[in-house]
């Protein structure tokens, strides 16, 4: 199912690009009628996902690009974060035990706590990975769940 994009953004995989991405995302969420506290949670989750791409997928090289697409599908906000880095093993990307007090590794927990569902897939045949995160916004008048937004075949890409 195709849906009109609420936001389409392409940025360099650099930490300095995170602030403009957050600003664009919060503006798009505001236009979409998402409540302020929820905007903050969603922006943090997407920011953390982009940080992981910069740090881990691209290895902090300062090279590469990230494409963010936000759509609304069947009442869900669907965030697709596409990179062009070497394939990442999805099995290695999982939340950690928050009972351990140690620096680092919190980003996936923020994503996992915020999103209703998410999945990371390498893209078949073409370089890169795609992380799709879906959240049904807790706003009045949100559309009823009619099966949820899919996580596969995001942005027309064939995923492995």
């Amino acid at each position: 199912m195709s849906a009109r994009a609420l936001l389409k953004l392409e940025m360099p995989a650099q930490a300095e690009a995170l602030k403009p991405m957050r600003d664009a995302l919060i503006a798009a969420l505001r236009r979409a009628g998402v409540a302020a506290p929820e905007q903050d949670r969603l922006v943090l989750a997407v920011h953390e996902a982009a940080c992981n791409v910069i740090r881990h997928a691209y290895g902090n090289s300062g090279e590469g690009r990230i494409r963010l697409t936000l759509t609304r599908q069947r009442g869900y906000l669907r965030f697709a974060l596409r990179d062009f880095a070497p394939p990442v093993d999805p099995k290695r990307v999982k939340p950690r035990d928050l009972g351990e007090c140690r620096p680092g590794g919190l980003g996936i927990n923020f994503i996992d706590d915020t999103m209703d569902r998410w999945c990371l897939r390498p893209i078949k045949r073409r370089a890169g990975n795609i992380l799709v995160m879906c959240r049904r916004p807790r706003t009045e008048g949100a559309a009823a769940n009619s099966g949820g937004a899919g996580c596969g075949n995001a942005d027309g890409e064939q995923v492995a």
């Binding site: 957050r22 943090l44 953390e48 940080c51 140690r102 620096p103 680092g104 919190l106 980003g107 923020f110």
Partner: peptide
């Protein structure tokens, strides 16, 4: 006005 996991990691490292 905003802090991410890398900022939290800096605080945790200081605390530890």
């Amino acid at each position: 006005s905003y802090i991410d996991s890398s900022g939290i990691a800096a605080l945790v490292e200081g605390f530890q």
